[in-house]
Amino acid sequence: MRALIPALVVAFVATTVAPAIAAGEADYKAAYAAADTANKEAARLRNQWTTAVKALAASKKAAEAGDFDKAVASAKLAEELSKASIHQSHEQATAWKDMEIR
């Protein structure tokens, strides 16, 4: 029981308090770097999505205004959208043939 109480406290802090802690510049930089890498890969595949590019720009703008929560959220959105566009490119490398008029 003695061991369980500290574990419960840690779990409580991790699930309720930690997410409420504001994101910092380091969080933003890590999230932005991940999003930027994915977006560059989408560009290399010549299939960037406008929404990914906009989200990445919004992340930078929010960080410049000191709103790191918003900056991190936008960067994560940009990363997800870029990854989806990369998936689309790989899938369509062969799937386009399914639509072809034969």
Binding site: S85, Q92, W96
Partner: peptide, 12 residues
């Protein structure tokens, strides 16, 4: 024929 963009549309 290849789908592009978030709307997942091709020209076709």
């Amino acid at each position: 024929y290849a789908r592009r963009g978030q709307l997942n549309f091709s020209c076709a």
